[in-house]
């Protein structure tokens, strides 16, 4: 399941960076595309703005298939305060831009990608290993935008599917 999560993150990161290369965040001293996986970062109550934050929630396994089919829910949170130059009055436009970027990245064909095993990347720096099946994902659903003082935020949810391959943990 971890390989499916990692693959989805990398695919989404690559697509979002191609759509808007200017959307970046500084994370642990490094400038990166404006997307992160919450559980892969240091625990914090801080919500990054003008970036996408992925959180994996529900999981369901359909064992009836020749390979167990795993459905995982991914919540993608994003928020913006607008820009200081515009006194925050562009926060709606900036949120709409993030809506558009996320929709474009998720709807881009194909809505699937070859599953990659990234376990060696973190451990030894080895290259990711292609696996045998593809991950694929649903259309996203967008929750209502919420406002907190000058901050406006939204959560989009997408289901990511993958087959659990033989020997995969």
């Amino acid at each position: 399941m971890q390989s499916a999560r990692d693959t989805f993150y990398v695919v989404l990161r690559t697509r979002l960076a191609a759509i808007n290369p200017a959307r970046t965040i500084v994370l642990r001293g490094q400038v990166r595309p404006g997307i992160l996986v919450e559980e892969n970062e240091l625990p914090t109550a801080f919500q990054p703005v003008d970036a996408f934050s992925l959180r994996w929630t529900a999981t369901r396994v359909d064992a009836a298939s020749p390979l167990p089919l795993v459905a995982m829910e991914c919540q993608i949170s994003y928020a913006t305060d607008g820009t200081a130059a515009n006194a925050g009055m562009d926060r709606g436009r900036l949120l709409a831009a993030m809506d558009g970027e996320l929709l474009a990245a998720l709807n881009q064909t194909p809505q699937s990608a070859l599953k990659m095993n990234y376990s060696g990347v973190a451990a030894t720096g080895a290259a990711a290993v292609p696996m045998s099946t593809n991950i694929f994902w649903s259309q996203p659903t967008f929750a209502a935008a919420t406002s907190d003082d000058e901050r406006i935020a939204r959560v989009a949810t997408v289901q990511v599917f993958s087959y659990q391959e033989a020997g995969e943990l």
Binding site: S65, P66, L67, L69, T133, Q139, F161, E165, A166
Partner: peptide, 13 residues
């Protein structure tokens, strides 16, 4: 290369 079990095709449209 080891073969993978074939699953029922899945597509949206």
């Amino acid at each position: 290369i080891a073969l993978t079990n074939a699953t029922a095709p899945i597509a949206g449209r």
